[in-house]
Design a protein around this nucleic acid. Structure first.
Length: 1121
RNA sequence: GCUGAAGUGGUGGAAUUGGUAGACACGCUGGACUUAAAAUCCAGUGGUCAGUAAUGGCCGUGCGGGUUCAAGUCCCGCCUUCAGUACCA
């Protein structure tokens, strides 16, 4: 009987399906093992041979583990939300759900044809409402949580509210928005509902924030950096501007340190861990504040105070009343934006206290000129609060809390139209610039500062003289995308703001510049420039002729900056001089903390993740807006299902596609989505119009497989407790800083909340390498008339060229462009396409053109007729082909497999021609799993003939015939050698070498003519994970009724491999000359004797005496001459 | 630039702890079978030199050094390719 892969594979695929062979149970006496693939996005193009590589590897491992007695969970599903389906919908009006459904059907058919042992009863689809119901639920959990730095985990917001009620927020250590205002418990209680919600939003793990994004007005959407090319949109080349938009964000930064720490306990590839480490980008340094110089000349011209008056004021500053002192004791502790200054001059007035960042003035009442003061301060944009002396002395805390609430919720200021505008000239306020530096030790090397052009202080500190230049520069940079700016590293650009900062230690003035090498969204968007120690600062300083002070001992900085840290001593740096990096760093931080303008800080590159997309085909948020504040819809009303829309484009007024929905309002009383008409009602509110990004659904799907059909819970406690985590996860390395980081983040969050039992979701991960395509090329001519040829008449040129057909030349007919030209010219002349008189006028160039690989056979020969008639080659229908030895040979090149390169190989065709088992074996045989490797279909004949040989072992001609005789010693040796190697290989994920081991075994058993049951039975099980269909068939032919899938793996018995002799390589000076068979039980002395008396040894020695004799028993003998 | 991975025949790739480099395949060459082709089977196949031949010599794992009885494997210094990331202060 011949091996017929078509019948066998169909038969067993049907058997597995009908018998639910691979259905995993959540209860078992066996140990559990969870093997997972990264689920695919079902694209319209279907699978190519590169996609199943990882699935085959994981399938082999899953099947192997079943043989080894494990209860294996091996599920599959679809990451089915995504852009391509949406774009198709925009073009065709087809609902993305429909396209997605169709694509999934194709995928399923293709996957089934390869014979995977997936438990399809647990399939998930991220676009299925029954699935995204729980994605929405997790979003709500994130919204309801805050990160407590004290317990170092996420906690419910209710615990935060409890603290607020008890003691306010002064002692709360949380990962939150920056610039949080401090309030007391009483103040908290006094806040309105909306005020409370605003405050809580600053703490929640998912929160609304104004984020700078790439906005494309023409497309009405935000674009990711990689969707922008040369400053315009990739699609349609529309201009893109940077814009602040309110977006949902995820506070992944809260988990930065734990995401780093967690890497140590998971068995993931080092390169992948490295790229996550880089991405998180922890750097240790210090935050330093530089005060902006207010400019003494300017203030003196504005302040109409006489010298004498100033003297009086100074005195007042030092002599405070009791009430003043007591209030100042409270106010002086305020930090950041709420910082207060005392006895400060605003205009011509000296105010008691002022918070400049929040525009609040606090004064004692009873001053003579109160009315004039109020009018002036209000016109300057200040809020004014007055207290009496008595109020302060009796209840200073009450006063402070009133001040706090004024800071938190400033009242609108009523400006009076002042008739006498004497005092209306703008007042120079005081600002400070915060910077982060990893080198606080070099602070004395600061000779200027640079702000990002977007920095909020830029407009405030720029002097009138520099205003025009600065504005010009800002508009110029705003036009460039962030990526653009970053790509262009060479051009140094920047503008001086005219303002100066005060060096906190030396108190010298340093210039403040803006420059686009400083990024607005990294660190604070400002740097202290140390040109002698940083190359970018150095280049900037050189370019703009800013001084470059040298603060390194004995280092030449005339050409480049000195960026090394170790071994160099700091110089010219006051108290830091003479110290080395480590000590200087510590001392610098210590000093700044002591003096109060800086502190040690760890900074992470990792940014909070923007979670809103202006797309249709994604998870809707379970969010509606009441009085502008986001409200979560209660979990029991989920899922909030995507509404129907007429158009999938953004609305005309720039709202996301969901803005087109007519039924997209939340009835908070009826607890359901209702028509937008009802928005007039008091209890009906608008729903969120953004949708979630692609990574939402994929960040937790591995948990859902554990209990995929549960409609009451995300997954039951028992199932989560049983399966715990993925034991083996296989997928591409392209997800290193996307999916794999977000999924770890969500898992840690879910762990903190007690929802999942482990905080890392995948114990071991393997990245499969990409399978590359082998593209085929044909070489096409383009003919030109040489310039300066003497034919001035354009028309005659055209005539000559028109007669020349497109010529396509076989690959081996030329080795250079010149040769190509002469081959083509000779052909044209021979065939009268070209007049010999014009031959020298014509120039021929070569273009390589992709040819569809399906038109090329395994010997690189092109089917010329098929090529001409191919739908894509209509322009070459009449082309002339120059053949070599009667055939056209194509050129080959290895490239990424892609539709546009016509090098895609479809697995269906392979399954049909060679069978799924051949495909599985061949994909593994190509090379190491982790490595990128080119696909060449021709190689599949090797594994295909292996399967035929394997089959033949069990047959005598047409009949199945297996002998029950005892196997020979040699046959047993082959078997056990194979068991050992295959088992080791699978454990090490070295699938390619076990395929060769099978080939060797089958070749050797064939040579021995071995067909004993005792050898063939275990051999069938060995092969089964790799080639399950043929294994099942042979297994049933061997007389078994049950599937082979759960049969015990053969046990290796070392006794069959025990050798009595070894064929020793005998080498001279390390070079092997001949081999010598010697018994293994010989002593070293006996070996030496036998080797030395051997005549081949004597010949090699040529009468010389060996200097040394190395004998490693069982391995090698080396004679040193 | 930084980080990581990798360089072995015509090709994909093997080679355990340093111990016979090129397993297993593809391709190619020759042969058998066939009217022919496909399929199948057999033999050969790193380069080079010598020899009618059997066989033997030399050279060979990106390059240059080193350690060692012995290096594809370990160490030092380069080169190249691929991947990720990028003005990260």
């Amino acid at each position: 009987m011949q091996y017929n892969h078509l019948d066998i594979e169909k038969k067993w695929q049907k058997f597995w399906k009908e018998n639910q062979t691979f259905k995993a149970s959540n209860e078992s006496d066996k140990p559990k093992y969870y093997v997972l693939d990264m689920f695919p996005y079902p694209s319209g193009a279907g699978l190519h041979v590169g996609h199943p590589l990882g699935y085959i590897a994981s399938d082999i491992y899953a099947r192997y583990k079943r043989h080894k007695g494990f209860n294996v969970l091996h599920p599959q599903g679809y990451d089915s939300f995504g852009l391509p389906a949406e774009q198709y919908a925009i073009q065709t009006g087809q609902h993305p759900a429909k396209t997605t459904e169709e694509n999934i059907a194709t995928y399923r058919k293709q996957l089934d044809a390869i014979g995977f042992s997936f438990d399809w009863s647990r399939e998930v689809r991220t676009s299925n409402p029954e699935y995204y119901k729980w994605t929405q639920w997790i979003f709500i959990q994130l919204f309801d949580s805050w990160y407590n730095k004290d317990t170092d985990k996420s906690e419910d917001v209710s615990t935060l509210i409890k603290i607020f009620k008890k003691e306010g927020n002064a002692n709360v250590k949380a990962v939150s928005d920056e610039e949080i205002t401090i309030f007391s418990a009483d103040e908290w209680k006094a806040f309105s509902k909306i005020e409370k919600e605003e405050i809580l939003l600053q703490y929640r793990l998912t929160f609304l924030s104004d984020t700078e994004v790439n906005w494309c007005p023409a497309l009405g959407t935000v674009l990711a950096n990689d969707e922008i090319v040369n400053g315009v949109s990739e699609r349609g080349s529309h201009p893109v501007v940077r814009k602040k938009m309110t977006q949902w964000s995820m506070r992944i930064s809260a988990y930065a340190q734990r995401l780093l720490d967690g890497l140590e306990k998971i068995d993931w590839p080092q390169p992948l861990k490295d790229s996550q480490t880089n991405w998180i980008g922890r750097s240790q340094g210090a935050m330093v504040s530089f005060n902006v110089d207010t400019g003494s000349e300017k203030s003196s011209s504005e302040l109409k105070l006489t010298y004498k008056e100033l003297e009086v004021l100074k005195e007042l500053r030092q002599n405070l009343s009791k009430a003043e002192t007591s209030l100042w004791d409270e106010l002086k502790n305020k930090k950041g934006a709420s910082k207060f200054r005392k006895k400060y001059t605003i205009g011509t007035f000296l105010v008691d206290y002022v918070c400049i960042a929040k525009n609040i003035i606090v004064e004692f009442s009873g001053k003579e000129d109160e009315a004039a003061r109020t009018e002036f301060f209000n016109n300057e944009g200040f809020n004014l609060i007055r207290f009496t002396n008595e109020e302060v002395i009796e209840n200073v805390l009450g006063v402070v809390s009133k001040i706090n609430s004024a800071i938190q919720f400033p009242k609108a200021i009523e400006k009076t139209e002042s008739k006498n505008s004497v005092t209306s000239s703008p007042v120079k306020k005081s600002y400070k610039i915060d910077v982060f530096t990893t080198r606080p030790d070099t602070i004395y090397g600061v000779s200027f500062m640079t702000l990002a052009p977007e920095h909020e202080l830029v407009s405030k500190i720029t002097t009138d003289a520099q205003k025009v230049a600065v504005e010009k520069y800002i508009t110029a940079t705003a036009k460039r995308s962030e990526r653009d700016r970053m790509a262009d590293v060479k051009t140094i650009s920047g503008v001086f703001t005219g303002a100066y900062a005060i060096h906190p230690f030396s108190e010298k003035k340093v210039q403040i510049w803006i420059g686009d090498y400083v990024l607005a969204n990294y660190g604070t968007g400002a740097v202290m420039a140390v040109p002698c120690g940083d190359q970018r600062d150095y280049d900037f300083a050189k370019h703009f002729e800013i001084p470059i002070p040298n603060i390194f001992e004995g280092v030449d900085i005339s050409e480049v900056a000195h960026t090394g840290k170790d071994g160099t001593k700091i110089a010219n740096s006051d108290f830091l001089s003479g110290l080395k990096y480590k000590k200087a760093l510590k001392l610098a931080i210590f000093e700044m903390e002591k003096r109060g303008f800086g502190y040690g800080k760890i900074n992470y590159r990792l940014r909070d993740a923007v979670f809103s997309r202006q797309r249709y085909w994604g998870e809707p948020f379970p969010v509606y807006y009441k009085d502008g504040m986001p409200q979560m819809i209660e979990a029991e009303h989920l899922p909030i299902v995507l509404p129907k829309v007429e158009k999938y484009l953004p609305t005309e007024d720039g709202k996301p596609p969901l803005g087109n929905a007519t039924e997209w309002a939340w009835d908070s009383r009826g607890k359901k989505v209702v028509s937008n008409d009802k928005l007039k009602n008091k209890t009906v509110y608008p729903l969120e119009l953004n949708t979630m990004p692609g990574w939402a659904g994929s960040s937790w799907y591995f948990n859902r497989y554990m209990d995929a059909t549960n409609s009451k819970e995300f997954a039951s406690k028992e199932s989560l407790e049983y399966w715990k985590e993925v034991d083996l996860y296989i997928g591409g390395s392209e997800h290193a800083t996307g999916h794999l980081l977000y999924a770890r983040f969500w898992q840690k969050f879910l762990f903190d909340k007690g929802i999942v039992p482990v905080d890392e979701f995948a114990k071991k991960l393997i990245n499969q390498g990409m399978i590359l395509g082998t593209s085929a090329f044909v070489y096409k001519t383009t003919a030109f008339v040489r310039n300066g040829c003497g034919c001035s008449d354009e028309k005659s040129n055209d005539d000559i060229l028109n007669k020349i057909p497109t010529v396509i030349v076989s690959k081996n007919l030329f080795s250079s462009d010149d040769e190509f030209e002469s081959v083509v010219k000779n052909y044209l002349l021979d065939n009268n396409f070209l007049n010999p008189n014009f031959a020298d006028l014509i120039m021929i160039t070569k273009t390589a053109l992709h040819a569809d690989v399906s038109l090329v056979n395994t010997s690189d020969e092109l089917d010329v007729e098929a090529f001409k008639n191919h739908a894509l080659n209509s322009e070459y229908k009449n082309a002339e082909f120059i053949l070599e030895e009667g055939v056209y040979k194509v050129g080959r090149e290895v490239e990424k497999m892609s539709k546009s390169k016509y090098n895609v190989v479809n697995p269906d065709a392979i399954c049909l021609a060679y069978g799924a088992d051949s495909l599985r074996l061949f994909e593994m045989f190509l090379g190491p799993l982790e490595q990128a490797k080119p696909w060449k279909t021709s190689g599949i004949s090797g594994v295909s003939s292996f399967l035929k040989k394997l089959w033949k072992l069990y047959f005598n001609g047409e009949t199945f015939e297996v002998s029950d005789e005892a196997p020979t010693k040699d046959a047993l040796k082959i078997l056990h050698k194979t068991i050992k190697k295959v088992e080791e290989d699978i454990e090490n994920f070295s699938f390619n070498t076990s395929v060769s081991t099978f080939m060797i075994a089958v070749n050797e058993l064939t040579a021995l003519k071995c067909n004993t049951r005792e050898v063939l039975t275990p051999l069938t099980v060995l092969v089964s994970p790799y080639a399950p269909h043929i294994a099942e068939e042979l297994w049933s032919l061997l007389g078994n009724k049950e599937s082979i899938s759960a049969v015990d793996f053969p046990v290796f018995e070392p006794k069959h491999l025990v050798e009595s002799a070894k064929n020793y390589p005998i080498s001279f000076n390390g070079k092997m000359r001949f081999t010598l068979e010697l018994p293994l039980d010989l002593s070293k002395e006996e070996i030496e004797k036998r080797v030395m008396e051997n005549e081949k040894t004597i010949t090699q020695l040529e009468g010389k005496n060996p200097k040394k004799l190395i004998i490693v028993p069982g391995k090698i003998i080396n004679i040193v001459l």
